[in-house]
Design a binder for these strands. Structure first.
Lengths: 253, 253
DNA sequence: CTGCACTATGAATCGCTAA
DNA sequence: GTTAGCGATTCATAGTGCA
């Protein structure tokens, strides 16, 4: 089997994931289409059907993940008729109770978006955070010892971060969203997958994003010396991913 | 009926709440004992029984809350055997489906604790946030128009807050925890109830904390010119509350 | 090459109107 | 009744252009 730094599978989950071997992935970081969002590209799964839609994908992710691997799921329920949807809560409960392939709900981290969407409403605060759900196959998952404590370097940015995070890694990440990045409407900042890649894998690990989009997870993996696999149905975005990866590869030479 | 700025009911929920009239409370802000915590004072409800324990209390809170009132529940599930408990998720779902007294799950805010408990675990990030669940009886709840947007004044403190909170109110609150405050183990900072009292009530409103503890919610209400009711079973803490309230009253004169 | 002004836009939400 | 579509609201970034 050829080892390439980054592999793109053009296809749809869960079918496309069947190309991957059991217990072969060290880390999954992904942001699936949220319920009723991105309808033009993903079909816009209604909230009521979201759990049923996601479970077969979760089973495949469980199969390909190493026992010591981690699965990070970025998601946020929207507000409808003044109330938050409950499908994310129901998804967490359903993943834990999966008969053949049950997940452990290890942790819930918070992505605090400094530059959240504008707006002012009489009955609602501005939505400025998203969930980062961590799931594992077993209790003893891998953590990189170099990133289990305080920042290694003490540059200005780190010091500012230390002031916020008190020196140790907390479960709140303060990162800005990307604006008009890579022509994709739902890209998270590269720092987000990078944060988890650094802490939850060792160098030359294999990272998977089953909803690759513009390929931010793959790019972060490449930059950190990890191998990666991305699944993306649209030809347009597969090309975007290749271009971004090639650009980074040229920069590294 | 005598109107007093702050009333302390020594007793236990839900029984003690039966002294309060229907539709009489403008805002409930509380931090109940978390599952398996504070066993000596509250009996330490096991996670499996937490929902069943809380539902009768929630019914009473629903009864006494005005239709336009809000209920803010500060809670965080603990981690056991490497996994987060799911009782908070189950509580949200159960409160919405309550037959006689269903709650709307309006919003979930995040309390980002900037100086959270120090420590370093091999398998876990530092726990630096808690949930602030907002529930309402109806979609149209009261919001104070003075606090629906940017800060009115531009003094130094406000500017600093603006820098953190992005000018407009988002649903992430960055507040420090109280350290050894008032001899109570589970005190939240006064800024926390104050933030909600300012935004969700008008002056001379009536604020309730059914798990008053050391009385931080009542103190915040007093300082903001609101009336308050607290329920607390222990004589020791009832005295602490009275002392703090008297101290603040003397300061106001 | 730096710095400042200006512009475009994003996982949003609400309320109204039309069908 | 109920749903579907559109306009208004609103601001931190990134990018562009020019002095």
């Amino acid at each position: 089997m050829e080892t390439e730094p980054a592999r793109i599978i053009q296809g749809r989950c869960p079918e496309a994931l069947m190309q991957l071997a059991d217990d072969s992935i060290d880390l999954i970081v992904t942001s699936p289409p949220y319920a009723d969002r991105r309808a033009s590209t993903y079909g816009g799964t209604p909230p009521e059907q979201y759990v049923a839609w996601f479970l077969p994908i979760a089973d495949q992710l469980h199969r390909v993940l190493k026992p010591t691997g981690s699965f990070i799921l970025n998601i946020k329920e929207s507000a409808v008729k003044g109330e938050r949807h409950t499908y994310v809560l129901e998804l967490i409960l359903a993943l834990r109770k999966r008969e053949q392939r049950p997940w452990l709900w290890t942790e819930e981290l918070v992505w605090h978006k400094r530059n959240c969407y504008p707006g002012k409403w009489p009955n609602r605060f501005r939505d400025s955070w998203e969930r980062l759900l961590q799931f594992n196959k077993q209790r003893g998952y891998y953590r990189n010892p170099e990133f289990s404590g305080a920042s290694a370097e003490g540059n200005q940015e780190d010091e500012q971060e230390d002031e916020i995070n008190n020196g140790l890694d907390g479960n709140v990440l303060q990162l800005a969203t990307e604006c008009g990045n890579a022509g994709h409407s739902a890209a998270f900042p590269e720092e987000l997958p990078a944060w988890f890649i650094e802490r939850l894998t060792r160098p030359s690990a294999l990272v998977l994003d089953p909803f690759a989009g513009s390929g931010t997870t793959l790019l972060a993996a490449l930059r950190l010396g990890r191998n990666s696999v991305g699944v993306e149905p649209q030809d347009k975005y597969c090309q975007v991913i290749r271009q971004r990866l090639e650009g980074e590869t040229r920069r590294l030479l």
